[in-house]
Simulated scan of single mutants.
Amino acid sequence: MTTFVQFHLLTSYGPSNPNRDDQGRPKQAMVGDVPRLRMSSQSVKRALRESSFFALDLKGHIGTRTKRLHERLVSHLVGRGTEPTRAGAVGTEVAEIFGKIDEPKKGEVARVATTLAFISPEEWKLAEELAERSVAGEELPKEKDLKKLVLRKADGAVDIAMFGRMLADDADFNRDAAVQVAHAITTHRAQAEEDWYSAVDDLNKAEDTGAGHLGETAFGSGIYYQYVCVNADLLIENLGGDKELAARGAEALAKALPQTAPAGKQNSFAHRPMAFYMRAEAGPRAPRDLSGAFFTPVDRKMGELKVNDLQRGSVRALELTSTQIDTCYYDGQAERTCPPLNTLDGSGSLTEIVRFVGQAVRGA
């Protein structure tokens, strides 16, 4: 049976704009016919991949998402003494394994792939080695055989194993994501606001009055609910059966989730929140998110929840929904879990959750 590890987090954000829409405003969504602030799953996954927890705990096992493999291959070959024109030709031949390459514009040498490829450390190393062999005079195999020499279905890139990848030109080497990340939404009614700001000209002391520059920026504030589900069996499979590496990846994810946020407008708002509530569950049951706890926003049912603040109301709504699902679907039996982290009353610990998650994946 498949083992699923699920995370439920509540995090308070002060005035901030961590994830912007096309107009520079905080992303939003209508939930239960009520406006909420939102953070996209893509922005959350990017923040996780860029976190120090992934960088330190999974060093050497992180992929690279880029269009610039060709440029790096050319630079690598030129650095080893290859003539630039020859390096460019070989770089194109090898880089096209991952996607089509743009033709250079007049006067340009470097070419960029049209496909944003997710490349594992092993694949990157193999691409460099293959390019070196070609420069040395070795004839490379034809396209399909060439891809088989570099592309891998299972490798040591934990983030690719977690979040998947799609190679449009060759679906045989796609990766199904073992980790699903929901869009985070506020548990209560919340809307974006506008901030008008001014800047003063330091050298203008007396000649002109008023600001040297006027501008505006949008921001929002709220308590976000975040849901993440890990298919532990698929994560292990995506890593070629390396259960220990999969467990390390899940532990790094557990550390990063409550302490990592998308970094939009960080310098303007210095938003560095840590989740005040985190719940982890593991077992063979069908996964379920608990966003239904917030379809009626918490601020509308404070009396019903018997609380007088949004943070405790959000915790109460989430736990109540979980209990009601267990009652109706599983005869009141809760999924296997450990004590949740709750900074509101100082209970639980991240260390305990990380240990619980690691054990669940190792036992999958």
Rank of each mutant, 00 (worst) to 15 (best):
G240R: 08
V228G: 01
G220M: 05
A254R: 11
L245R: 06
L234W: 10
Y225D: 08
Y224T: 08
A232P: 11
I236K: 05
G240P: 11
T217L: 15
E251A: 04
E251Q: 15
A252T: 12
I236S: 01
L257H: 02
N231Y: 06
H213Q: 15
E237S: 05
A261S: 15
L214K: 13
L245D: 07
A250N: 02
P262Q: 11
V228S: 05
L239W: 07
L257V: 09
L235Q: 01
L214G: 04
F219Y: 15
I223T: 14
L257C: 03
G240T: 12
S221L: 11
L257E: 03
G215K: 15
G241H: 14
L214W: 13
E216D: 04
G240Q: 10
C229R: 02
Y227R: 03
D233S: 04
P258K: 01
I236T: 08
L214Y: 13
A232K: 04
L245I: 04
A256V: 00
N238L: 04
I236Q: 00
L214A: 03
A256Q: 06
Q226H: 08
P262N: 05
D242Y: 12
N238W: 08
P262D: 13
Y224V: 04
V228T: 08
A252E: 04
A247P: 14
G212S: 11
A254K: 09
G249S: 05
L239C: 07
L214T: 00
Y227I: 00
T217H: 10
G220R: 10
